[in-house]
Each structure stands twice: as C-alpha cells, then as structure tokens.
Design a protein around this nucleic acid. Structure first.
Lengths: 213, 213
DNA sequence: TCATGTGAAGAGCTTCACAGCA
DNA sequence: TGCTGTGAAGCTCTTCACATGA
C-alpha cells in the first residue's frame, strides 16, 4: 500500500503528470527530464521532482524519468490500477453531460450507471450507460465495487440523494450541487461549485494583476 | 476601486460568503457573528474575520456583521455590481449544461450567448440563450461588454476557439477542455478539468486519512 | 557530466491569542 | 460584556541551491 499522507496539492497535480505521460508514450518518447516536463506542463522542474520524490526515487540521475515506468507508478499511487468504477447520481442535463464527459474523456474511470428518481429519464441509455432508479444503487455499488459517486441532482433533492449514496457504502462524493451536504465522519466530499468558481473568476476580470493559474 | 491584490484563497471563499448571506437575508436575518457564520459554512470564525478584514472593517464589535451591508460589500469587491455578462463557447452537451446551470443557478451572471461552429446547433435557443456562429463573437462581446468566456469545445477545436475569444477582447477564460491552452500574457485561464479532479479524488477513495474538503 | 533527490530558506496561508471598540 | 480586527506564531507548500549518483 502506498503512502496516503501526501499533501493535497501534490495529489491534485498527479493526474496532470499522468495525462502528459500518456501523450508522451503515445508519441513514443521513452525518457523525459523534469525540465522538459516543466515546459510541457508549466510547473517548475523542482516542483515536479519534489512531487515525485515524495513517493520514491523514480528517475535516473543524469538521464531523467522513464515515461512508462513513471506512468505506472502514478497510476499505482492514485489507485487507478484496475479501472475505477463510478456512478453518476442525477441524470439531468449536467448529469448526462458528466456521464458523456467521463465516458469519452476519462480513460481511467468507468461509469457503470446513472441514477435518478424521474421515471421519464429512467431507462435512458447514454453512450452505453443506463440510467436506473436510485433504488438500485445498493445493488450496483456492491456488484461493481463502486467507491465514488458524482452528484448532480437539483438542490432540493441533494440531501436525500446523499443518504442513498452513503447507505450504499460509497464514501467519496464529487458534488456539483450548490448546497452544503451533511455527511457522517469519514466521508470525503469534493465540491465543484461551478457558479462560485465563476464568480471568483469574475474578480480577476477587472484585476490588473493577472497571472496564470 | 477595491484592492485587487488579495490572496487567491480569500477570493475563492468570497462567493461562499455571498451565497450564505443571500440565504440569511432571504430569511430576514439582519445581523450575524463570525462564529454563527462559521457554523453555517464550516470555515473557522477567525478565517472569516481575516478574510473580510482584508478589504476593510465591515463588522460592529460586540454585535457582528450586518448581512445586507456585508453582501453589498462582497458584491462590490468581486465586481458583481452590475450583473456580469458572459458567453459560453461550445454548445455541445457540456456547453448546453453549463448555459442552463448558469442561467438557473447563478444569480450574479448573465449568459448573453452561446457560440459554436456546428450549423446543426447554431440557432438553437437554450432557456432564452441563443447559440450563434462563433463569427459573431466580436459583435456580441462589444455590445454586452463581455469580460469572461466559458470554454467547452472538443479538444481539437480548443486552441482555435481561444484565438477567437482573445481577438474579441475577452481576457478571462473558464476552461473545461482537458488541454493546455496557449494564451498571450495578461490573459487569465482558470482550468476546471473534471477528469483530473475526479482522478485525484479517487486517491482519497482508498485513503485512511479522509477529512472534509 | 548531467539530471535527480533533498535539506534549507522563503513565501503564503491559517490559527492563535488578545487588544480595541461598540 | 461580547465580538471584531490584528500582530504573532505556526503550518504547509514552493523555491533555492547543491550534494549525490548513474
């Protein structure tokens, strides 16, 4: 088991390295230095080395990093080893877009089902992903060993959906609903509040001191 | 003109305060202490006070903060004073979901148009927002004084779309495309890479040290 | 020789503890 | 008295500078 006490900031950057490495491997680049990676990504070379060094010594001095080896290490660290199964709760416009997005753009996760309470969308099929009645979440979570749920229901239904999700055994939620979710201890909620992100972005639209994210 | 050199972390939290204040005002709460706000939000009371104090002394010692006054101050600081006009570039599933999301869930921004290059979606109307040919972006940006674009096109078209956006005079981009965008200096890009966020979240699905976001 | 890996310094943000004021 | 506003301490993350090793 890998070390799970890494700084959050490092964990956020690992998928960035993963994507670049996938590209490099596709282009048959076998070795890359932290300096060259730095130019591809925009982080400093020191930061890249420090991030990777946190988990072990994956490079070769004088040479750089073997792209395939490093990719495999990062996959192992994040825990993407066997493709990860997720569910999307809420099959409205945003939920459907998120299902499509992950099916087409995210090679490391597998959406096994969508859930909703609205009979008019239950039974729909989105790129091979079936929208089911939320009542079936326990069955699906158990069958596919699902650990993560994406939440995209209307705000009024969010807390009820959370109860269903937690009861199924899932304890990591990627929340797109602009509401505070109440969860028991040990549950990890990551909020992607798009309205609030956009609002804080607007601050920079009139700022003088603009710099890259 | 308000101070624009505030820490990024503070700017990210301002919209959180704004939402809670809107709720409180709706419930006719006129005054609230940092301690009570802390319980609503989850940040510490000290942090809330420090965040607000960065921009001025908005509270009353011994009493707390006047909700309406504080809301107005935050609106002014972020720059949401007159409703902010934005455009959404890319009217695929995600783009359409983002238009709907902002129209229905974001009281402080106004989506004035969607843009695309695909004739089959040009002319569509999404909750009152028309999808136009990207060629019209300059005209719309000028007419509505647009400062921010949300980008949700296919990856292959991202850089071309960025050129159109920048030429129109917009210099803040909220990017949902999983690609590095090349922009000139002075342009602010905020990346919302949902695949990567989900991947880093998966790390926590097998971690022992789970705590709130 | 060249690029990694790493202690040390630095920067940025948060928490603490309390002075200041209604 | 009670809650804000704030210097100081503490913590986390980043940058620097260089020793280490292929």
């Amino acid at each position: 088991m890998v070390n799970k006490n890494a700084p959050k900031s490092v964990i956020r950057r690992l998928p960035v390295y993963l994507r670049i490495l996938d590209n490099l491997i596709r282009n048959e680049v076998e070795v890359i230095s932290s300096k060259d990676l730095s130019e591809e990504i925009g982080f400093t070379a020191e930061q890249i080395r420090k991030d990777l060094a946190f988990f072990g010594a994956f490079g070769t001095r004088g040479t750089g990093y073997n792209t395939s080896f490093l990719r495999d290490k990062i996959i192992e660290i994040i825990g993407l080893g066997e493709q990860t199964n997720i569910v999307v709760v809420g099959a409205g416009h945003l939920g459907i877009a998120l299902i499509r997005y992950n099916v087409t753009k995210n090679p490391y996760v597998n959406v096994v089902a969508g859930f909703d309470v609205d009979p008019s969308v239950i039974g729909e099929n989105i790129l091979g992903v079936e929208v089911m009645n939320i009542a079936r979440i326990n069955e699906i979570v158990e069958r596919y060993n699902v650990k993560v749920a994406v939440l995209a229901v209307p705000a009024e239904q969010a807390q009820a959906a959370v109860e269903n999700i937690l009861e199924s055994g899932i304890n990591v939620i990627f929340n797109f609903v602009p509401t505070k979710l109440y969860v028991k201890k040990g549950v990890y909620v990551h909020n992607a509040d798009l309205s609030m992100e956009l609002q804080s972005l607007i601050y920079y639209a009139t700022a003088e001191n603009i710099k890259d994210s």
